[in-house]
Design a protein around this nucleic acid. Structure first.
Length: 439
RNA sequence: CGGGGAGUAGCUCAGCCUGGUAGAGCACCGUCUUCGGGAGGCGGGGGUCGGAGGUUCGAUUCCUCUCUCCCCGACCA
């Protein structure tokens, strides 16, 4: 993409409304614009990141055996009355009436709808287990939206729902998602730690929040240092195998958010040199809720013995749009964003320092064409701007690599390759630089 | 929802106290000089001063109501 033709309205100054760093940087980098409180428009650069995150989430859901569906944003109130949540949900749910005066709502979540879909089509234990997910916009009318896309009212969320015959089966589904989440966040370049979460009236130990560590996170978290060294992506996962040992390994060590933190236990279970106290952001939540919805909504299947039982369900959420902000919170410096390669909107920012110089242009066009041929996502700054503005802009949007073509280097037959994270620069021949970026 | 703050140019903000018909920097357009880390000169365009009502000869400025946004707290992917 040529920057001269790209819609990327960057800001030199920080809009007054933005408090936290990810919000500031997303506005400044031209990724989003606020439409109203907690509701955002996604501009090209931001949308590219959102789509990349979405794709990784999708790939890992599929890999774990879940199947994608797409449910609507607008739902009828009837189902919610059946589950009892229409009244229970409160003002956080956006309620709408259609032209006929029917009560509708903008879905804050989809348990009711997916259960309805399931119950009308699945009648036998033979068709279990099933995991169905979708990635869809949700709306929760937060009293006080804040932190940009991290805590918006409208947000993109992946929610998966599992259906099993009994608790044992549900636990297997739960474990699949547990492992899937570890892989998902690792692929996004994040350190995520599963922390025991409140299971509410259901009880049991099948609820975890996945917290990523970021210095600007909204809550204090405490965990064992070994979490940070686990190699998640090292081995392929066999989702049909028994995942319990993996889950055990990840839940044995201490990891709690501040509201569950117990200093006495922390100090007893974790050696002093292994204690990690950091800030964290919740980006995922997995939850087993048994027959909470299948009973009122009558999602029943026949058992091998012929009796009808309510299915055991779980739900598994990942805040996809929140992750865009969360990645920035976890990865930035004073100059701007530092994208992990997996979610970067482009891999390379190609900077032509001097548009007016024929040799710079020739080299720039050549590299741009070759990178594109090689399938490398490249943003070519071909604007007639001063070098300082180009450097600052490229640092701000945080592409992993910057390739700088300037008269000074070309005289020596070299271009400059800079890694955004760390800032190391290297002078290379044009060919060597290309080989580096396409290799 | 309780408490606090803010709405003036695309962005950051001044002016309001003490009423007289709106400014700066950045951004934008033209031009000259510059050209390896958000340059400088000159010239220019751009504002229902959030909205409604009131007081006044006259309101961005004073009063009332209202809308929106932000921050702190209680709640959440």
């Amino acid at each position: 993409m040529r920057l001269s033709a790209y819609f990327m309205p960057t800001l030199k100054e920080t809009p007054a409304e933005a408090e936290i760093v990810s919000h500031r940087l997303m506005l400044r980098a031209g990724m989003v614009r606020q439409a109203s409180a907690g509701i955002y428009s996604w501009l090209p650069l931001g949308l590219r990141v959102l789509k990349k995150i979405e794709r990784i989430v999708r790939e890992e859901q599929d890999r774990a055996g879940a199947q994608e569906v797409l449910m609507p944003t607008i739902q009828s109130a009837d189902l919610w009355r059946q589950s009892g949540r229409y009244d229970a949900y409160g003002p956080e749910m956006l309620r709408i009436a259609d032209r006929h005066g029917r009560d509708m709502l903008y879905g804050p979540t989809n348990e009711e709808l997916i259960t309805e879909i399931f119950r009308t089509s699945v009648k036998s234990y033979r068709e279990l287990p099933r995991m169905l997910y979708h990635i869809q916009w949700k709306f929760r009318d937060e009293v006080r939206p804040r932190f940009g896309v991290m805590r918006g009212r409208e947000f993109l969320m992946k929610d998966n729902y599992s259906f099993d015959l009994d608790y044992e089966g549900a636990k297997k589904s739960y474990n699949k998602m547990f492992v899937s989440y570890l892989r998902t966040f690792a692929r996004l370049g994040l350190q995520a730690v599963p922390m025991a979460a409140d299971t509410g009236p259901i009880g049991g130990d099948l609820s975890h929040e996945f917290i990523i560590l970021a210095d600007t996170g909204e809550s204090e978290v405490f965990c064992h240092r070994d979490f940070l060294d686990f190699d998640v992506l090292g081995a392929e996962v066999d989702y049909e195998a028994d995942l319990e040992p993996v889950v055990q390994a990840w839940t044995r060590l201490y990891a709690r958010t501040d509201d569950k933190h117990d200093p006495a236990v922390f100090e007893r279970e974790v050696p002093a040199d292994k204690r990690v106290q950091r800030r964290g952001i919740e980006v995922g939540h997995i939850f087993y809720f048994g027959t909470k919805y299948s009973e009122p909504l009558k999602a029943q299947v026949a058992t091998p013995g012929g009796e009808s039982v309510a299915v055991h369900m779980g739900s598994y959420g990942i805040g996809v749009s929140r992750l865009v902000g969360a990645v920035i919170e976890a990865s930035h410096d004073k100059d701007g964003i530092i994208w992990p390669e997996a979610v970067a909107p482009f891999k390379v920012g190609l900077i032509n320092l001097k548009i007016a110089a024929p040799d710079c242009n020739k080299a720039g066009e050549e590299i741009y064409a070759k990178l594109q041929e090689a399938g490398v996502e490249v943003l070519y700054d071909d604007r007639d701007e001063r070098p300082g503005a180009k450097f600052a802009g490229m640092d701000l949007i945080g592409l992993p690599w910057q390739l700088v073509i300037g008269p000074r280097g070309l005289d020596k037959g070299v271009v400059e390759l800079k890694r955004r994270a760390g800032g190391e620069r290297e002078e290379l021949s044009l060919e060597a630089a290309l080989a580096r970026l396409t290799g």
